[in-house]
């Protein structure tokens, strides 16, 4: 019923082209950083050259997830030009092949970086000699976060099976998509329609990307194909974290189905990670569960997740 989205290149091709993966989710405290760290660890273990980027500017803690002290130079130093080269703010993690660009926990102003600074950061990061750049995005749906998500080759959306997290997940998808559609708009009419869609109580009654397309169809039919192209090439990948029972696993399939039916978005279900006491025990000890307890259920699922993402596979709904 739902086939894999072939956006991630197979291992041989991945060597030729570096990829940006990002982990977002809208809501705080749902395990984005831990999943990012564990994924990075797993990718490095199977031979990828990985750099983790803590893009949670203002709330960075990826270094803690990895059991490292806060590095003396961070992304914040690069942004405000205290460090010239992005390499200067990159540190070894102790895991071969896995390096870290820490966030700007010492520099609160970095949470509101300007667009030009963001472009500079992204370009320098993209130029690094690695296979996979894995970014941990902060909570929320600010442009900073969404722009990082949108430039990614693989956009991972973390949710936990709770209404608050799901609500923020949908909000994240809509915000990202509208930002993308706005960027693709070729005239003021379409931009106005997209802008009004951002307001939940908009007079056009737009609540979903499908509504938005219908509104553009009425006002400016010529713009529909380019927007449709943006819509159909947007493929968020859900990861359901803190899964406690089989019905929680099913939520991932329901999210994918709901996105297709009610938002017109072709999402996929990349995988899930079980709720696991080993994880928080490791967090307490400032150790990464994926390396400290590689046999725990969460670590096993992260391995499957990493493999699936590398091969562009997803969990399919079969009857």
């Amino acid at each position: 019923m739902m086939e894999a989205v072939p956006a991630v290149l197979p291992a041989s091709a991945a060597r030729q082209r570096r990829q940006v993966w990002s982990v977002g989710g809208g809501k705080g405290g749902i395990g984005k950083s831990l999943i990012t760290a564990a994924l990075g660890y797993q990718l490095a273990r199977v031979g990828r050259k990985v750099v983790l980027v803590d893009a949670d500017l203002g709330g960075a803690n990826l270094h803690t997830c990895l059991g490292l002290a806060g590095p003396s130079l961070t992304l914040g130093d690069f942004i405000c030009r205290r460090a010239d080269r992005i390499e200067d703010v990159m540190v070894e993690t102790g895991v071969p092949g896995l390096r870290l660009i820490s966030g700007a926990s010492d520099f609160l102003g970095a949470a509101n970086i300007k667009y030009a600074q963001k472009v500079r950061v992204l370009n320098r990061i993209r130029a690094l000699d690695v296979d996979i750049i894995l970014m941990d995005l902060g909570a929320g749906t600010s442009f900073n976060i969404i722009d990082f998500f949108l430039v990614s080759d693989v956009g991972i959306l973390t949710v936990v099976p709770e209404p608050t997290s799901i609500e923020n997940g949908y909000r994240f998808i809509k915000s990202a998509l509208y930002r993308r559609l706005r960027g693709a708009a070729t005239n003021g009419t379409v931009r106005t329609i997209v802008d009004s869609a951002l307001d939940h109580k908009n007079p056009l009654g737009i609540r979903t990307p499908l509504d938005l397309l219908a509104a553009v169809e009425r006002e400016d039919p010529a713009s529909v194909p380019v927007l449709k192209q943006q819509l159909t090439s947007f493929h968020p990948r859900f990861v359901v974290n803190q899964v406690r029972d089989p019905s929680d696993v099913s939520i991932g399939h329901q999210l994918v189905t709901a996105c297709a039916r009610h938002l017109g978005v072709k999402a996929t279900y990349a995988g899930y990670v079980p709720f696991d006491d080993s994880v928080w025990r490791c967090v307490r000890q400032r150790r990464l569960f994926a390396s400290a307890m590689p046999d725990c259920p969460s670590a096993q699922k992260v391995r499957e997740l990493a493999r699936g993402l590398m091969q562009g596979e997803s969990l399919a709904l079969t009857w």
């Binding site: 709770e162 209404p163 799901i166 609500e167 329901q254 189905t257």
Partner: peptide
Amino acid sequence: ASVAIYSLL
């Protein structure tokens, strides 16, 4: 009691 559809419909 669906979680997946919450806030969407």
